[in-house]
């Protein structure tokens, strides 16, 4: 528990550190906003239409596959920590886990879901 004192304090200091220059920049920087300067950038032409983007399912698929592999690797971390103590059987159990998830990856690749269009 004592370990985390440093991390908490560092997180507070780390959040304050970039906040200070930004606030100073807001204070001492000029603030002459006009309509043209504040318009959002669209390669020099006027913005047309609402600011929303067509949903491409690729964004979602990549995040989803990442989620599945993230959870898998999280299961593997305690197994890796205990690795030196495990008999061969334990190691093979972990290998079976990894192979099952490799199958998931192969399925996803074969179904062409990991293609970026």
């Amino acid at each position: 528990m004592k370990d985390w004192t440093f991390i908490v304090i560092l997180s507070i200091v780390a959040m304050a550190t970039p906040l200070a220059p930004i606030l100073i920049g807001r204070l001492i920087g000029p603030r002459k906003g006009n309509e043209l300067k504040n318009a959002t950038y669209e390669c020099g032409v006027e913005t047309r239409g609402d600011t929303w983007v067509q949903f491409k399912v690729q964004y979602y698929i990549f995040a989803l596959v990442f989620l599945v592999f993230d959870v898998e690797v999280v299961f593997l971390y305690p197994w890796a920590v205990a690795y030196n103590r495990l008999p061969l059987f334990g190691v093979l159990a972990g290998v079976v886990f990894v192979i099952t998830l490799a199958e998931a990856l192969i399925y996803t690749i074969r179904k062409d879901a990991l293609r970026w269009i």
């Binding site: 599945v68 898998e72 299961f75 159990a93 099952t100 998830l101 998931a104």
Partner: peptide
């Protein structure tokens, strides 16, 4: 542990 991996496989499929 092993069932969890099969669950993840099923979720992805």
């Amino acid at each position: 542990f092993e069932v969890a991996s099969i669950l993840l496989l099923g979720a992805l499929i």
